[in-house]
Structures are given as structure tokens and as C-alpha cells.
Design a protein around this nucleic acid. Structure first.
Length: 569
RNA sequence: UGGGGAGUAGCCAAGUGGUAAGGCAGCAGGUUUUGAUCCUGCGUAUCGAGGGUUCGAAUCCUUCCUCCCCAACCA
């Protein structure tokens, strides 16, 4: 794991690291740090999970500890191997190595044994109340709950019933095992929470071996204790589950089941991102309702979506680092995510030229069969080398780079204006050709042969440098321009009567029939480039040798866009 | 109205009684064969509000306000 955060930059500790350092100082766990990342395999991981993964693995690595990947598979009705495979892949892709791969289902027998122990010590009972009755007996925030009539069953009867639940003598939903805590508690989680329910459904790992399945609150802490997790990091909504987490473990009064010291649950604020939704439920709806193609649609905030979009693990890790860890609800500006991917790709992505909306330029003083082989740098840093690019008498430039009536400070093409073709030469626009509709279809330019390579020997300055491709050498390509899925900063913050889907961005995907330089013809899936002056792109998995497909990961910053916007109104 | 949390610049986030780090965004300028990158500079942050303790408070006490989470046989 030397490739992850090799150089921890000087940075203040977050509150979880404070806790760990103080535990280390007191030798509470004998110097051990063992965390776990506990996803439920019922969906794909998103960037919020990435924050959690980076936190759990990152903090453990920082203190010489380790992290388990543990699938929280206690609800067979919702879970599937498809998800465990994708989750494992995502964690690996992010660059983290798990100490072990475990499943809550690995502990079903131990969980059952401890549950029997709780029954035997009078801490748990079998309840026959229906689901609706349980809810009713639980009371609400304002009124305390009342004891279930089954709460006072004898230990013998409870044990018998619980064993028969396991043996399949009762129908689904007819009985549950409950912890006997306090129906009057202000904390709803302590009002005799359910520990087991009867559920005849096929489990992705244990098959049909079990008919009863443990609930999260019971299974999670026990699993942590079995693995001897030191710090059990979760999100804020579990804060008031903590007393229950501790209660379950503390009932091992004889120390027959768990080793001391017990794990400690610590909660932090989950990630929220502007212009995106983050809940699995919403993401599932986006997929099911066809707003996106699949979980790995490059517009999705899923890890696989971001990966397909062209994000790097390094950028995601840097993002997690900069977002920080705290307990306050926050809404992080997606601009920070864009910044970390640009920061990474700026250094690593080789530069290429691609024209998204081609406008033909004829160089009238260049012979039709004239071809110039140019050597163009792959990156401002010469360490990235160079490549050959051909120039012929006809090239394509970006339609946006020509204005018949240019605004102030326009550095690009306009009637009579001279610009540089990146890495090639200077051209001057002499004539504008339009079709019958009045649309500009071609520019006739002259070039200065003395400027081959890009500079004029007479020292005259040209302010604009444009990207271009040679018409006879260009390759046709599909370029997919992605934008965030919503136009609202906080899509879930909807007005009365509104729907979170209302601000879905109709332009989150635009497809261009582009002309790209010849060297891009053989690009392989997931290769990343900077298309000069446009942005960072990666080769999509839909690509075929004769029909390359590129995804725009993120556009370059564009300060002209702002100037232009100010000019217009 | 019960329980649990949180409030520091537009967005994150340090700070743990000694006089408000850093990042993102934004603004201004410089360099530039990417209007990119890079470099430089720029924010009077009523530290949610009031009261108190103290020589001194974002940090301690107190009252109040606002926001978030909890009433699945989900996790």
C-alpha cells in the first residue's frame, strides 16, 4: 500500500484521529487499530461510500493498522452477489487492500449462540405481537411505549420458542426475538428492539440454512466484536443506535463471547455533493426510470460511474482528504471534486487535439497535395515526449473559435484575424463562405510558411492559439459531453408539491460527431487525454477500433466563458 | 412537546482560555504556442444570538435561536 497517500502532507487531525491517538497513547487496544468498511451488498457504491472507504482504510494505514471489508448481509431479501462483486472491485480500484473479507453471515451461528445466551440470561424474549402491534406498543416520541404481553415469558419458554423459530416451526413474521431493555426509553432504539425475524428467503451465501435472520443493530456490533474491531466508524444517523450497540456487547457479563476491550462506535457526517443525489434509493430510481443508462453511467456519482467517466482513484482519494471529516451536516461543492480530477490529470494526461464541432478551413496558399509532418509536444512538461501530427491544406477548427463580428478581446478567428494553429503555423482569415441559409460553412485562410512550428520569425505576436485537426488525416469519433445530473444545487431540497426529479439536467449528456487527430485512432478503453483547450477525456468502453468513443471527464477551466457571458447581456 | 447531534467567510474545515490555519470557489495582476497550468496579491469571518466568569473567551458557565437524525420484522 505504498501508493496510497505516500506523503501525508502536514494536516490537522480530524476528531477520529484524535480518538485513535488517545487510545494509542493509553494503549487501550494494545496499539492495535482495526477498522472495517461494512457495506450492505444491496446496491453499488457511490462517492459517499468512497469517503467512508478512504476514512476507514486511510486512518488504519496512518496508524499502522488494518481494515476489514465486511459485507453486512443480514437481509437476504435485498442482497445479491452482483453487488458484493462490484463492491469488492470498487474498493480495490480505489487502491485499498483489505486485511480480510468477511460477511456478517459468517457469524450467523455465533450470533445465534449469543442470542440464546441473552435469552438464558433473561435479556431477550420471543414476542408474538404482529408487526402492527409492535409498532403500536412502541409508542412514539411523545408517548412512552408499553410492555409487550409476551415480555414476561419464562426463560425456558423463550428458549424453547427461539429454538423452534430457528427450526422452522413458525410462519414468517409470526414471532420475533426482542431484547428486553426499556419500553419507556426516550431513545426509540431501546424500546425492546428486534433481534431476529423469521424470513424464509434464500441467502446469497448461506442458502437455505437459516430461517431466522439477525437485525442490523444486533448483528453489527457483535460482528465488530468478533473481528476485534477497535474503532467502528459509521455515519451520523447511527448516533442514537450507539447505546444499543454498547448494550448488546455489554450483556456478555461473563466474558464468554467477546474479548475486551470492546469496539467503539464513532459517527461522522456523510458526504453530500451539490448537483447530485446520493441515496441508493434515488440512484436506483434514476437507473430504473431510465434517466441514466445503468449504475455505471458516467453521470452517476457511483464509483463505477465516476470510473467510467474518467476519474482516477488518486483524484477520489485526494477529494476525500480535502473534504475532511467532521460531525456537521454539509453540502460539498462539486467544484472541489472537479478540482481534484483536474489537478491529477493536468499532471498526467497526454495532450491531443480534437475538434468537437468542426468548421472547415481551407488554406488557400497551400497546395492540395502538400503535407507537413509536425512534431507536437504531448504535454507542457517535455518529459511526456512528443508525437507526429500531419497538416494538410484543409483543416477543421472549432466552430466556436470563429466569430464574424467578434466581441471585445476576442483572440480567435474573425475576418482578417490571424491566429496560430497549435504546433503548426499562423493563418489569417481572408474569406468567409456561407451557405444559402447564411450559415458559415467554410473559412478561407492563408498561412505564413515561415511560421511552420508555430512562431513567426519576424517576432509578430498572435494572441490566439487554436486546436485543429487536418481534414485528410482526422478520425471520426463520438465524443460524449457529460454534465452533472441536476441543475439544482440540492435536488432533494424541493418545494411543496415538487419532486426531486424536477431539476434533472436535460443537457447532462450531449453527443458530438467529432474529428480527432489520427494518433487517437487506436486509443484503448480507459486511456485518458487532455483534448487541448477543451478538457479531459477518456476512452469509453463502447469504443471500437473503427468508431472511437470518448467521455469528457471534466472541462478545462474557462475564464473566457465568464468574460463572454458578461459581454453578452 | 421525548431522545440524540450540529452551528467558525459562498462551500468544506482547523482551532481544546492568550487574541481566527488551510483548501475549494471568487476577484486582480504576471508568465504562457492550451483564454489551461503555474506564480503573486486580495476576505475587516458581529466564530448562531444574548448574558455571565476571566486581565483575556470561538474555546468555560448560562439562557435562547436555528438546522439535522430517530417512531422498518431496512442498513
Amino acid at each position: 500500500m505504498t501508493d496510497v497517500n505516500p506523503a501525508p502532507e502536514a494536516r490537522s487531525l480530524n476528531f477520529i484521529e484524535d480518538i485513535i491517538e488517545s487510545d494509542l497513547a493509553s494503549t487501550k487496544h494494545g496499539g492495535r487499530v482495526l477498522t472495517r468498511f461494512p457495506p450492505e451488498p444491496n446496491g453499488y457504491l457511490h462517492i459517499g461510500h468512497a469517503k467512508s472507504i478512504c476514512l476507514n482504510f486511510g486512518v488504519a494505514m496512518r496508524y499502522g493498522g488494518a481494515t476489514n471489508l465486511r459485507f453486512d448481509d443480514t437481509n437476504p431479501a435485498k442482497e445479491d452477489v452482483e453487488y458484493v462483486d462490484s463492491i469488492r472491485e470498487d474498493v480495490e480500484w480505489l487502491g485499498f487492500k483489505r486485511a480480510g473479507e468477511f460477511y456478517a453471515s459468517d457469524y450467523f451461528q455465533k450470533l445465534y449462540d449469543y442470542a440464546e445466551y441473552l435469552v438464558q440470561t433473561g435479556k431477550a424474549y420471543v414476542c408474538d405481537l404482529s408487526e402492527a402491534e409492535i409498532r403500536e406498543y412502541r409508542g412514539n416520541f411523545h408517548t412512552p411505549g408499553k410492555d409487550s404481553p409476551y415480555r414476561s415469558r419464562s426463560v425456558e419458554e423463550n428458549l424453547d420458542l427461539f429454538r423452534r423459530m430457528k427450526a422452522g416451526e413458525f410462519a414468517d413474521g409470526t414471532k420475533v426475538l426482542r431484547a428486553k431493555i426499556d419500553m419507556q426509553s426516550g431513545n426509540m432504539n431501546l424500546r425492546d428492539p428486534l433481534m431476529y425475524r423469521i424470513r424464509r428467503s434464500h441467502h446469497h451465501r448461506t442458502g437455505d440454512a437459516w430461517l431466522i435472520y439477525p437485525m442490523y443493530d444486533y448483528a453489527h456490533g457483535v460482528s465488530d466484536a468478533i473481528e476485534r474491531i477497535t474503532h467502528s466508524i459509521c455515519t451520523l444517523e447511527f448516533e442514537d443506535h450507539r447505546p444499543l450497540y454498547e448494550w448488546f456487547l455489554e450483556q456478555d457479563i461473563e466474558g464468554k463471547f467477546f474479548q475486551q476491550p470492546l469496539p467503539r462506535q464513532i459517527e461522522f457526517a456523510r458526504l453530500n455533493l451539490t448537483y447530485t443525489v446520493m441515496s441508493k434509493r434515488r440512484l436506483l430510481e434514476l437507473v430504473n426510470e431510465g434517466h441514466v443508462k445503468h449504475w455505471d453511467d458516467p453521470r452517476m456519482p457511483t464509483i463505477c460511474g465516476l470510473r467510467r467517466r474518467g476519474f482516477t482513484p488518486e483524484a477520489l482519494r485526494a477529494f476525500a482528504e480535502r473534504v475532511g471529516v467532521a460531525k456537521r451536516d454539509s453540502l460539498t461543492d462539486v467544484a472541489l471534486l472537479e478540482h481534484t480530477i483536474r489537478e491529477d490529470l493536468e499532471k498526467t494526461a497526454p495532450r491531443r487535439m480534437a475538434v468537437l464541432r468542426p468548421l472547415k478551413v481551407s488554406i488557400t496558399n497551400m497546395a492540395k497535395d502538400e503535407i507537413h509532418e509536425l512534431v507536437v509536444a504531448n504535454h507542457p512538461d517535455p518529459i511526456h515526449g512528443s508525437r507526429k501530427v500531419s497538416l494538410g491544406h484543409e483543416v477543421f477548427v472549432e466552430r466556436e473559435d470563429f466569430e464574424e463580428i467578434p466581441p471585445k478581446k476576442w483572440f480567435r478567428l474573425a475576418p482578417g484575424a490571424e491566429v496560430r494553429l497549435k504546433g503548426a503555423c499562423l493563418i489569417r482569415c481572408e474569406e468567409v463562405i456561407k451557405n444559402t441559409e447564411g450559415e458559415v460553412v467554410e473559412l478561407r485562410c492563408t498561412w505564413d510558411p515561415a511560421s511552420l512550428g508555430g512562431d513567426a520569425p519576424d517576432g509578430r505576436k498572435v494572441k490566439g492559439t487554436l486546436h485543429w485537426v487536418s481534414a485528410n488525416h482526422a478520425v471520426d469519433a463520438e465524443v460524449r459531453l457529460y454534465d452533472w445530473l441536476f441543475t439544482s444545487e440540492n435536488p432533494m431540497d424541493v418545494a411543496e408539491g415538487g419532486d426531486w426529479r424536477d431539476t434533472l439536467n436535460p443537457e447532462s449528456l450531449r453527443v458530438c460527431a467529432a474529428k480527432v487527430e489520427a494518433s487517437l485512432g487506436g486509443a484503448m478503453t480507459s486511456e485518458r487525454f487532455q483534448f487541448e483547450r477543451l478538457g479531459y477525456f477518456c476512452v469509453d468502453s463502447d469504443t471500437r477500433p473503427e468508431a472511437p468513443v470518448f467521455n469528457r471527464t471534466v472541462a478545462l477551466k474557462d475564464s473566457w466563458a465568464k468574460v463572454d457571458a458578461q459581454n453578452k447581456p
